[in-house]
């Protein structure tokens, strides 16, 4: 194994594909955090209500009965921004 041959082989095709996927996923998630910051509530699957143990439908407490939750990425971004604004 010579040094000359080792350099190109360090970036194998599978690694390049993996890197591209990673970048795409990260940017895609950031984009969705920006343009579609809300996603369906996981608890009630976007319905806003849930069945109780007794079978009654009651408002979902996780999403305040809206059926929407803020994406985790957006939540982090908001917190970071609030911290920065508070420090000014």
């Amino acid at each position: 194994m010579t040094i000359l041959a080792a350099t190109p082989s360090a970036l194998s095709p599978s690694m390049i594909v993996a890197g591209m996927v990673l970048v795409t996923v990260t940017f895609g998630y950031a984009l969705s955090c920006w343009l579609a910051p809300f996603a369906r509530c996981r608890r009630c699957a976007g319905a806003g209500t849930r069945k109780s143990l007794l079978g009654h439908r009651k408002p979902c407490r996780s999403c305040d009965a809206t059926g929407w939750r803020l994406r985790a990425g957006r939540r982090i971004a908001n917190t970071l921004r609030d911290l920065r604004d508070a420090s000014r």
Binding site: W34, P37, F38, T66, G67, W68, R69, L70, N78
Partner: peptide
Amino acid sequence: RQAAADANDPGTWL
């Protein structure tokens, strides 16, 4: 819309 997301106000956003 961004302000609604910042304020975590899903109703307004919707």
